[in-house]
Amino acid sequence: MVRYLGRKIFIYLLTFFVAVTIDWLIPRFMPGDPIGMLLSRIGSRPEAFKYLYTYYVQAFQLDVPLWQQYVNFWKGLFQGDLGVSIWMYPQPVMTIIRRAIPYDIFLLLPAILLSWFAGNHVGALAARIRWLDNTILPLGYLLTATPYMWLALVLVWFLGNQTNLFPIAGAYSPQYRPHLSLTFILDVLHHWFLPFLSLFLVMFGGWAIGMRNMIIYELESDYSRYLEALGTPQYLIRRYAFRNAMLPQITGLALQLGGIVAGAVATEVVFAYPGIGYIILNAVQNKDYFLVQGCFLFIILGVLIANFLIDLVYVLVDPRTRLGMTGE
């Protein structure tokens, strides 16, 4: 067990190192000049521009050699300092991300968990009820094949634009400041519903189809047939099949949860929802090295932590993994 965990942790640390290095490299490969873009927004006179340019290049430490920038980046990382955003100068990257992440979790966590739960159960039912299968299967394929932003646009059009049932942008109405009151909470939920629904529907389709296929596979497997030949009632066979069919779904859930930090870039852009996805788009457009880096760092962390947790969960739920550890 200790050896197994040790090995896993080592592999995760190595992956983290490589991923973060790539994360540092990629924004710097982008064409364009972030400082130039920052200054063009300020719109100063030419002589001031030159002076400010040198000032900012120094302030962001972009004048030192690349290897030094890389070392500085790691140093800062260990102190929890991800630098200062260029786009939202002079706010620290950490502050921006910390402000955005709750929106992602608030949006994605319910969407992922509820769609997973509902999808698994509806899929399992569809595996044995003919009429449900005939409706859920095509619907599921349709939903899961739908691009998130397309469904989001359709929802915005019908439920926002045409019927005015729901607001179409932002996390709350602009006249409010975030505070704790019933009206504000209702307003937040009102804004939250459409992006949530668009994510939920697409994910639901995928889960339901996956579960339906897995259950059918399990019900056709040898252990199910054996139990049936021994006259076991259906409820027991189904219980076994459901449990075994859940294993791949748990992996899928973990991968989805890993993407929780930035799993909804398209959706957040459509709804102008102020999560990490929305920030990434702006950071990229503004060549904001530090912000892009910071966002991706959190994505990397999310994916790795989720994978690690799932490795642990598998040890608990699947005896084959648990027993395989000693045989390594």
């Binding site: 040898d222 047939r225 054996y226 030949a229 021994l230 009632p233 076994y240 449990r243 294993l247 005896p319």
Partner: peptide
């Protein structure tokens, strides 16, 4: 169903995979 196992039973061809792995 009632007769299976109590009166008629089967050792299947796939006995190696006949037990629920989990």
């Amino acid at each position: 169903r009632e007769f299976r196992y109590r009166h008629v039973s089967l050792i299947p061809q796939y006995a190696m995979n006949a037990l629920n792995p989990t």
